[in-house]
Design a protein around this nucleic acid. Structure first.
Lengths: 207, 207
DNA sequence: GTCTATACTCTGATAGAC
DNA sequence: GTCTATCAGAGTATAGAC
């Protein structure tokens, strides 16, 4: 009767499912309260599991949060990765903006988990920001700069152009309550935003 | 020897000073961790006071946070109030944008306290958002609409134009670590942002 | 007005029965 | 794999001495 091995055993179907349930519940709670404000009790209740059961699947609260964040970072950067240096400049940038806006609309909780983390000084993903994120942004910034130098888009500081896309698209997810409070009912923030941001970036990018 | 009255007694100088010290420390801590993540221990340490002493000046953690928020809201809306319907449209809007950017630069902690509150669903200021804030924005939106209808600025949805100013200026305060991580050292985010946002809104507003 | 001591609750995590 | 019971520590708040 050998002791159960701690090696990388593939997860059973039920384990996979429960891990997903937990991560989904954690998304709810972390996105609303941030890391410190969230409690295992809340996550357990949303997940419909007992607190010790949570800790059977994950070693700690930190571990849940870490898994969530690392899974998210990739998804979050995909739209920027897809920006094609060989495509039509304006269409590529507008397409990037639209994909970011769709992420905000379809995954607002994910956006807020990020916002919380960065707002709190990004203690858990600072290296990723200074490493992978910076590298990717620098790479795409040089594409933008090339487009500007060859007169295909307006001459703008590429990093800040990217920041402006982030800021305006994420605003609709992160500050959703404020947007809706100000607009009042009978408004669809995202479809209005789509039209507005299209106009905005089209004018901005015109050489 | 009458019992001390609980009526609105003017605060002594030392009381004023200590309340300010506490609110300033609370700004540090709330801006970093949000309401639930912040602890009285942290605030007390930053303030250089004992925890019970904090609770001598304020009845509860809630009360500290509430006072902070209500004090902030006014300051935060001042730039928008100052937007003059009789001024030059483009100059007024650019001036508003610049004042908002200056607020982000000079009061990033205040910006983050707000961001935290709204990110978490604005449980404590939702009424203010739906009341005072909406009223003010609606009023200024009609000014913008008038300018657009008379051809003095481009025809853009006024509410979303205001959102874009909020999003882009506050981004530099709220996501400061990310901005700096991506730009790397040897950059002054705010002076670059000032130039970039000036260009952006000038192009955008041109009829 | 300020401090020490402490009451009481919440929270993350563990032990051990089933 | 899941639960009940429970621990240790942190958290808000209060009592009471000085």
């Amino acid at each position: 009767m050998a002791k159960q091995q701690a090696v990388n055993r593939p997860l059973t179907r039920i384990q996979q499912k429960n891990r997903q349930t937990i991560l989904n519940a954690a998304l709810d709670v972390f996105s609303q309260y941030g890391f410190r404000g969230a409690t295992l009790d809340q996550i357990a209740e949303v997940a419909g599991l007992s607190k010790p059961n949570l800790l059977y699947y994950f070693p700690s609260k930190e571990a849940i949060h870490a898994e969530l964040l690392s899974g998210l970072l990739d998804t979050w950067l995909d739209p920027l990765r897809a920006l094609d240096p060989d495509g039509d400049p304006v269409q590529e940038i507008l397409g990037y903006m639209r994909r970011k806006l769709e992420l905000s609309r379809d995954y607002p909780r994910e956006s807020r988990v990020f916002a919380n983390e960065i707002l709190q000084g990004a203690p858990r993903i600072k290296e990723a920001l200074e490493g992978d994120l910076k590298a990717l942004v620098d790479e795409k910034a040089s594409t933008l700069r090339h487009w500007a130098e060859t007169g295909r888009i307006a001459d703008l500081p590429p990093h800040h152009l990217i920041f402006s896309i982030w800021a305006m698209t994420q605003h609709y997810a992160d500050f959703d309550v404020q947007v809706r409070a100000v607009l009042g009912p009978d408004h669809d923030p995202y479809s209005e935003a789509d039209a507005f941001l299209n106009t905005l970036f089209r004018k901005l990018l015109a050489p």
